[in-house]
Amino acid sequence: MSAVDPAVPRVEPYQPGFWRQNQRRLAPWLFLAPGMLMFLVYVIIPIFQSIWISFYDWDGLGEAIWIGIGNYVELLDDEAFYTSIYNNILWLLLYLLAIPAGLAIAIFLNQTVFGIRLVKSLFFFPFVISQVVVGLMFSWFYAPEFGLFYQLSEVLTGKGIAILADENLATFGIIAAGLWPQIAYCMILYLTGLNNINPEQIEAARMDGAKGWSMLWRIVVPQLRPATFIALVVTVIGALRSFDLVSIMTDGGPYGATRVLSFYMYEQALSEYGYRMGYGAAIATVLFIIMMVFISFFVVRLVTRERSG
C-alpha cells in the first residue's frame, strides 16, 4: 500500500542551471556591459591617464620625464592660469543669465496665436547652428571698421568700439555670443516644461486671486523645477567647456586675455606652439576637479530626488 510503484518513474526535483538561477540578477549587467565597457575605455581610463601624464614633462613625442607635482607648482605661478580661472568664473556667472532669459522668452512664446510654431522655431534657430558659425557671425558683428556693432557704437559714441581687440571687453563679447544659442536651449526646455503644467492649478490660483508676478513665482516656476534643473546643468557644463567660441573669435587673445581653462589646456598641449602634454594635462586635471564639484552636486540631487520619488 505504501510501497512505491516501481513502474512510475521518479520525478527528479527540478534543478535549474546556473543561468536560469541567476538570470534576473545577471541580465541587467549583461545589457549594461557594452555601454560600461565603452565608458570605461573612452572616459574613465583616459581620465586617469591624463592625471598620470600631468606628473610628467612630456612633449608628446620624446621621452616623458617624471617631475612629480612640478606642473602644478608651475601653474600656481602662472598668470595665464589665473586669467583663465577668472574668465571661467565670469563665464559661469554670466552664462546663468540664459536661464531667466530662456524662461522669459518661453513664457512669451507660450501662447496660441496663428503662426506661433514658426516663431518658436525661429527663436530656437540659434541653437541649431554650429557654435563655430555663431562665433564667426559674432566676430563679424564686432569687427573693427565694417562690423555692425562697431559702426553702431561709432554713431552713438563717436568712437568705434572694437570689442574683441579690447582686453577688458573681449570676454564679455564672447560670452554674449555664447548666450545667444544657450538662451534658445533654455527656452526650448521651458517650452516643453510649460506644456506639462497642470491647467487646473492655474485655474485654481486664478480664482484665489493670483496674477502677474505672484502667479509666475508661486505657481508656474515651482512646477517648472525639473526643467530648471536640466537648464542649470546644461548651462553650467556649457560654460565650463566654452572652448569653440574662444578659439574662433579671439584665439585666446588679445594677448591671452580671453583664455579659459579648456582653451589654455588646448593651447599648451595641442596647438601650433604647444608641445607640453604634461602641463596641459595638469590644467585639464584642475578643470576636471572644478567640474567634479558641480557634477557631483547635480548627481547627488538627482539621486536623492529619485529616491524620494
Binding site: Y255, E267, Y273, G274, Y275
Partner: peptide, 17 residues
C-alpha cells in the same frame, strides 16, 4: 622654440597695444 615663440609674440602684441 615653439613655447618661447608663443609667449614672445603674445608679449609683442601686448606691447603694441
Amino acid at each position: 622654440p615653439a613655447e618661447m615663440a608663443k609667449a614672445g609674440m603674445e608679449g609683442f602684441q601686448e606691447f603694441m597695444v
